[in-house]
Computed example of a mutant assay.
Amino acid sequence: MKLSTKGRYGLKAMFELALHYGEGPVALRNIAESQDISEHYLEQLIAVLRKNGLATSVRGAQGGYLLSDNPKNITVGDVIRALEGDIAPSECVRDENTGKCIKEDYCVTKNVWIKIRNSINDVIDSITLQDMVDDFIRTNGKKGYMYYI
């Protein structure tokens, strides 16, 4: 199973907002440059994240985007599900799948798909944006920043 660019880039954008949490709004242009994402594509992703209550916007000259909650309260799963929908390796184990498969009673693979889905969900729901920021700081320190006076 592979995530689309929506999930991957959206998580990068949310990481960038988490990295600057408490510093005020972050301009979309800055997120795009820092994460090497098309600004136009990022606009589409942020719109979905806003609609799902994960990000907010601030208008004006000093405007931009903010996380709608503390990074320790937003999980990777929240972000990926907002952008990708339900995470499942097969249609038959999607949460929104209401139809019963005609082979469900004797399907030998359904339990495998359920275990994979549950494992993925356990992992992405256990990692917060704050965990990502902490990992970044621990592994990179301040190497990624260049300060000019």
Score class of each variant (00 low, 15 high):
L3V: 08
G7W: 00
G7D: 00
R8H: 07
R8M: 12
K12W: 04
M14N: 07
M14T: 15
L17T: 06
H20N: 15
Y21K: 05
E23N: 15
G24E: 05
P25D: 06
R29H: 10
A32Y: 02
S34Q: 10
D36Y: 10
D36S: 14
D36W: 08
D36R: 15
I37K: 02
E39K: 13
Y41W: 13
Q44M: 07
I46N: 05
I46P: 05
A47Q: 08
L49Y: 01
N52T: 08
A55C: 07
A55K: 01
S57T: 11
R59T: 11
R59A: 14
G60H: 11
A61N: 14
G63A: 12
G64H: 03
G64A: 11
Y65H: 15
L67V: 06
L67I: 04
N70M: 11
P71Y: 06
P71T: 07
K72Q: 08
I74T: 04
I74Y: 02
T75K: 03
V76I: 06
D78C: 05
D78N: 14
V79A: 02
R81G: 00
L83N: 04
E84V: 09
D86W: 03
I87S: 01
I87F: 00
I87D: 00
P89D: 05
V93K: 00
R94L: 11
T98N: 13
G99D: 03
C101L: 09
I102P: 04
E104C: 10
D105H: 10
Y106L: 09
V108K: 13
K110H: 06
N111A: 08
V112D: 05
I114V: 14
K115A: 13
I116Q: 09
R117D: 01
N118M: 03
N118Y: 00
V123S: 03
V123H: 05
I124T: 06
D125M: 02
S126K: 01
I127S: 02
L129A: 04
Q130F: 02
D134H: 02
D134S: 10
T139I: 04
N140F: 12
G141K: 08
K142V: 15
G144T: 13
M146R: 14
